[in-house]
Design a binder for these strands. Structure first.
Lengths: 192, 192, 192, 192
DNA sequence: GATGAATGAGCGTTCATTCAT
DNA sequence: CATGAATGAACGCTCATTCAT
């Protein structure tokens, strides 16, 4: 039922989508939706929350995958999982990253918090992967890097959706490389 | 009159904004707006078009600035102009980059085309700046790089808005560096 | 189960009350209510009918109380019973007298008929009490007097609810006196 | 336009009446109503307020009528005006006295206050008319008497509507007489 | 026989849009 | 030309009512 909502919300922004559409897509009626989700805002919030959880879970699982080859870069594995999610769940990503940018109102706070969760996850990933080599990294630098990584990944994802001949693997490789190169550049910038 | 519309559109998404608000901000009445701009979609399209023009114009002017120091990197100058625009015209950028994702309708096409104009401008900038050194660059790679550059710049712009203590100049330097480093990485990836 | 309905109906008018509330107060579920009472109108009608019966029964029992002192005015006893009922069953009276004014539908007829039953009871009481002394009373005058008595009693009841320091006994005394004085005035008006 | 609303509100209680009906009766459309009256509650409140004003105004004008015969009882004149209003503006009275009895919500407070205005007016009338003869009247007694007078008048009004052969003049005479007799009885009760 | 789950119908409210002035 | 006033259409939400269990 939330699946249907995600599908519909990915087709248009919050106000363009009507409860009737969501109910139709879910194969039920409006009152039923209200009984389960409470309100339109509630539905949207539930969508964003659920998709955030799914995305973070997918990335975590990949990073901590016990069956992964020994020497493999966990950051790369995480990025790959991210791309797999974005390309395999295009709708989710649209809802999460593109529709969630309402400035005012109570929804904005909530969705901003959730988007921050994704960034925080990436930041944590970066910190973990660089531990030992880049201990002197300013936490604020890490934050900024994480944001750039997510933005870059978003651009790659868009690209991927328009150029199906490119592989998520290659994209993941590129983002990882870029992020490492940012890291090196950043360290160079702060500690000569 | 379009100024007023941009101001108001930056406060909320397309549907949250009412014609009444726009007319009030413009200091006129609704029918007058209809006479000049035709419809709400027309107004929004006009806003996006105008702001796109302004942004591109600002970047071009900076790049071709005849008074610029001789050895300075034009890419860096362009990026700096971009940041100056984004921080100095926060409303415009919001309308341009964040609000433009509507339902399929005719508006989506239009705004997508305009966003592509910005990307194309950056792509042209990259091509121009790398001419001679990176002639073997695949145009598609250039496209991808341009997208990444704009996404990264957007992330920086957000960061800048939340951290006023950082300077646009430093941000512009970072994006430029990163883009160059991407270029090098890209070339390394395709031509050993 | 009807008790619950009366309680809830006394809290708000017909449309403000939801079947859900009634079912919750009754400790059962909506379909069960429909099985027993048929519809919302049915429930409301049942409430009014039942409370009408209770009120009339209470007044009758008091009037014909075999243990009452010999010389006591039966009209006064009836009025006292009325006040005891209204103050002791505030909810019932509210439903009965204040909520019963709905749109023309079938409900309006029904409830009007029931309110007329109360008035008729009072009219009968007046007739009985005045038998012998006021045989020449026009039945229409009796009707009018009964209506006034009920209206007056309603006003007293409201007053009582807002001024708990007054006793129902005193109120009953006043209404009785007033009714008698009306009777005398009325007779004076019609039979010189 | 409020006239239409009064007409429609007199046909059914607050929730039974729909904005569409009111708009239809007013010969306009729903949005127009909202532009002028703001909301359904606003419309209802405006109705009650307006009719209260009209009723009180009518009574006052009659009481202070400079062309009235010298020796006439002003209380009687006020009562007559009241009956003329109620029979000549049946809808107004219905809205005022019968529909206004919603218990909860913000409307209840407002309408209760307005009904109190009517009672207060009558109380003032009683005080003025008895000044000199009944100076020892407890204000609370006056309040109670005023309430009873209004209730009685309401009963008479109902009677009048069902028996068009009776004249408002006779009814007014009766209420006046009854009120005077209540006064005498009341004085007798408190000061032997 | 009792209920959780479902829904058709309808309401109050808003907004982009258009006449009549 | 500019505007005050008006509205058709649509939306979020609720509730009395009914099946399937």
């Amino acid at each position: 039922m939330i699946d249907a909502a995600v599908t519909v919300f990915s087709r248009g922004d919050y106000h363009t989508v009507s409860m009737e559409e969501i109910a139709a897509e879910a194969g039920t009626s409006k009152p039923t939706m209200y009984q389960y989700l409470g309100s339109k805002e509630g539905i949207f919030a539930a969508c964003v929350r659920r998709e955030t959880d799914r995305l973070i879970e997918a990335v975590r699982a990949a990073v901590h995958d016990p069956h992964a080859p020994a020497g493999e870069d966990p950051l790369r594995r995480g990025m790959h999982a991210f791309f797999a999610f974005v390309t395999g769940n295009r709708e989710s990503w649209t809802v999460l990253y593109r529709r969630a940018a309402l400035r005012g109102g109570p929804l904005a706070e909530e969705t901003a918090r959730l988007r921050d969760r994704v960034v925080a996850e990436v930041a944590g990933l970066i910190t973990a992967c660089t531990s030992g080599d880049y201990d002197d990294l300013d936490p604020r630098d890490t934050q900024l890097l994480a944001r750039i990584a997510v933005s870059t990944a978003d651009a790659f994802a868009d690209w991927l959706l328009e150029h199906p001949e490119e592989s998520p693997e290659a994209m993941a490789g590129h983002v990882t490389e870029l992020t490492w190169s940012h890291l090196r550049a950043r360290r160079g910038a702060t500690s000569p």
